[in-house]
């Protein structure tokens, strides 16, 4: 792969994985899960909803009856209710299993598209120089020892070091932006009010 292409891809992947870790993997997973299930599983959910509605109506009918006076009808409604509960439990467990399966697949896919390519590239191109820093920009010991950290020729920047710098810059920028634009809500401290007379401890919000 050409150096410039490599540079582009590694930068993109690193930034994307960092963004993902900011927004939270779970949110992304849930988004994908919801769109997937809407597309494929809607029939099962519809069936579940139908059975649930039926069950609620049977329950309503049953509560209107007096068990002692209409024992046979009440028992028949009971039987139907139990049957529906069983069916609902079966569908619920199926849907849950499906959810677990899909979520684990999504996690795996995410890993595959971000972490794995980065690691592979780092291993495969560990000795490739991405670009060269012209002499004189940094002090001599930087060129000799620092920039070319793993095994590079003097003055060249390899993939490892580049990722490291990219990550640091990214997170610094993120912290700065967070400081200026995002205000995290802090809860007011609650004061514990220990009542001398009673044995209860109540909490009172400070004014």
């Amino acid at each position: 792969m050409q150096n410039s292409t490599l540079l582009f891809w590694i930068s993109l992947l690193t930034i994307v994985s960092n963004i993902l870790s900011i927004t939270g993997h779970s949110k992304f997973e849930q988004f994908v899960f919801r769109t997937y299930t809407k597309a494929t599983q809607s029939s099962k959910y519809a069936q579940y909803k139908k059975l649930k509605d039926e069950q609620i109506s049977i329950n309503r009918e049953r509560s209107l009856l007096s068990a002692q006076d209409n024992y046979a009808k009440w028992t028949k409604l009971n039987r139907k209710f139990d049957q529906l509960s069983e069916k609902l439990a079966a569908i619920e467990s199926e849907l849950n299993m499906n959810k677990v399966k899909v979520e684990s697949t999504i996690k795996l896919a995410l890993k595959f598209t971000t972490v794995v390519p980065i690691t592979l590239m780092k291993v495969w191109y560990s000795r490739t120089s991405l670009f060269y820093i012209p002499q004189g920009v940094f002090p001599w010991f930087m060129n000799y020892f620092v920039i070319n950290f793993p095994f590079m020729t003097k003055g060249s920047v390899g993939i490892f070091f580049w990722c490291f710098c990219l990550n640091r810059v990214f997170w610094c920028l993120y912290d700065i932006l967070k400081f200026f634009f995002i205000d995290e809500k802090v809860e007011k401290p609650t004061k514990l009010n220990v009542d001398a007379d009673s044995t209860t401890v109540s909490t009172k919000k400070t004014e």
């Binding site: 006076d69 209409n70 024992y71 046979a72 028992t75 028949k76």
Partner: peptide
């Protein structure tokens, strides 16, 4: 007999 009738039905 009230319950017996219900049982006959059930």
């Amino acid at each position: 007999s009230k319950y017996l009738e219900q049982m006959d039905e059930l």
